[in-house]
Simulated assay, not measured.
Amino acid sequence: MNLSRLRLIYLAQSPLVTRSFLQKLTNEDPDCSKIYDCSSKELVDHYQFSNKKAEQLYHYIQQFDSNHPILKKLRQFKIWTIHDQDFPPYLKYIPDPPIILYGLGRSDYLTHSPALAVVGTRRPSKDAKKHMYQLLKTLVDRDWLFVSGMANGIDGYAHRIADYYGGKTIAVIAGGLSHPYPPEHLDLFQRLTDKHLVISEYPPHVRPERYHFPERNRIISGLAFATLVFEAQERSGSLITADQALEQGREVMAVPHSISLEQAKGCHSLIQNGAKLVQNTYDILQEWEESKLNWQQI
């Protein structure tokens, strides 16, 4: 493992280092050589740290060596940096790409195609499982991969459908891999790390915070050619994922439901605003046929 890569990974483990800082650093100093030679004053002047934080980060950097205990603990995880050749190209060019990804499971899934993001409410209707089976089972049989967020409800259903029927799935979680969330899905997390893939952009030791959930949505949409919303309330996390997909130039599809269903309002709003209405699996396959040439050129 080359030195500049280790330096970036080590730096990212510090609680003083934010996503925006990592983005600025990798743009200006891809091999991390300059920051490791910075004084605490230069950290203040150039990177806008407070005096106290600059001093703390300076001492943290000075403790780096390629066999540091922090780096040893990370060896159980697969790690991709944005400079790695096997970093997923679909993510590299989104407006706000993750700089580092941590994974457990099948690393080859990260570049599998076609991949479909499947999202929706944590409180699905009683018909949700039936509708998801009707639409997704054929895609499993055609070797599609589903990307979702391992949340309760629709996310969990998507992962379980892929797993039960011998398909492929990726879970993108909020927080680090040592703190899977929600606790109700610990069995699912274990199953996915054994047979599929779970990833996060947060270092493994980081506990999930509220703001992590909307942040991780851009990775869910970014890994897939399209985002399919099954059930979603208005102003929900699923609609944030749909917005992220549009910003990334991805397709958005939505499944309609009864107008009396609260969980349908978000989907109906998406359809009113141009999302593709999905009534059967053919609608999804047709969208892929129209999109795959552009997608495969990324």
Rank of each mutant, 00 (worst) to 15 (best):
D283H: 13
Y165N: 06
T81R: 01
S107H: 09
E287P: 00
L91T: 04
D194F: 01
S39I: 03
Y109F: 15
A162E: 08
M1F: 06
L228M: 07
D187Y: 10
G149Y: 05
L188T: 02
M1T: 08
A242T: 08
G105Q: 06
C32Q: 12
L22G: 03
L277I: 06
L3S: 10
K195H: 14
A171E: 07
L74H: 06
S33W: 01
T138R: 13
V172D: 11
K195Q: 14
S291C: 11
E234K: 13
S236A: 05
M132C: 13
Q23G: 02
Y211S: 12
R218Q: 08
P69Q: 12
A174N: 11
E184V: 01
A232H: 04
L135V: 06
L16T: 02
L192S: 11
D283L: 08
F230L: 15
I220V: 15
A151W: 11
I161P: 06
G120Y: 12
F87H: 03
V255D: 04
L43C: 09
P214V: 10
L22E: 00
L101I: 10
P15T: 01
S66I: 14
K24S: 10
R207C: 05
G153Y: 13
G120M: 10
D96W: 11
P89N: 13
Q248W: 02
R218V: 07
S125M: 12
G103P: 06
I220A: 05
V278K: 06
A115V: 08
S113R: 15
P204C: 03
V118C: 13
G153K: 10
L277E: 04
N27S: 12
L25R: 07
K130E: 15
A128V: 13
L22M: 05
P214A: 09
L192P: 00
W288M: 06
S4F: 10
D29M: 02
K73E: 15
Y10G: 01
D194L: 13
L293S: 15
R19C: 00
H83A: 08
E209V: 11
Q134H: 10
L145R: 05
Q244G: 01
D86P: 07
H257Y: 05
G274I: 00
V278D: 03
V140K: 11
A128D: 05
L246M: 09
Q13M: 03
R207P: 00
E42P: 10
K52N: 15
Y58W: 15
V119P: 11
S260L: 14
M132N: 12
S238I: 06
M150T: 09
L186I: 12
G105F: 08
I240D: 01
K41H: 11
Q48P: 00
S178Q: 14
L261W: 10
D163N: 10
Y10L: 03
I154P: 03
L6S: 04
L285V: 12
E234C: 04
W288Y: 12
D163P: 00
A128Q: 09
K73A: 14
I79N: 04
R235N: 07
P69H: 08
T138A: 15
E234F: 07
P95S: 09
Q279C: 13
E201Y: 03
T26S: 00
S269N: 11
A264P: 01
M253K: 03
K34T: 11
S238K: 02
P15W: 03
P88T: 04
A54L: 11
Y109K: 04
P15L: 01
Y282K: 11
R207G: 00
K195N: 13
Q63H: 14
E215P: 00
K276R: 08
P114A: 10
T169K: 04
R75V: 04
G237H: 03
